[in-house]
Amino acid sequence: MTAKIAEFMNDYLAVLVSALIGTLGYCLLFNVKKSRIIYCCIGGTLTTLIYFICAESGFSLLMQNMIPAAIATFYAELMARIVKAPATVFLIPSIIPLVPGGRLYYTMSAMIDGNKLKADMLGGQTVLIAIGLAVGVVLVSVCFYQIASRPRYNIRFERGKR
């Protein structure tokens, strides 16, 4: 088991470090408050780690992206409640390593080469990943929002009120 973990880390260490630095860069790009950056970086690295664990375990492309997105959202909502900041602050940097920038590029590249079959396949995968991310985010967020649901304003037509 430990040997397996060591092998895994050996394969993915460079990728994890680059995800960490990339998340840090994204935080700076969108001016996240300096004291929150550390949590965002932890989130980004965690998401990447889970993504690769899912990929190694042989989940489908959709699930590979849905599970890390769900966990990233859970992490962001949890941190928002612990640190008392909007959840967006943690969610956006945490989820950024999952964004299919690579597939978008290869789709475009295949289209320019005139390889329609490849372009269709990659384009479909890009959309599938985007759907996976969306479902992952929505599934978890909905649970949190149901707990603290939309307050009722503008009560005009109710008994005992005006």
Partner: peptide, 17 residues
């Protein structure tokens, strides 16, 4: 900080992918 953000994001994700 913003400049660092541009550089780090591009560099790190080039390695990431």
């Amino acid at each position: 900080f913003k400049l660092a953000g541009y550089v780090l994001t591009a560099a790190a994700f080039a390695v990431f992918f």
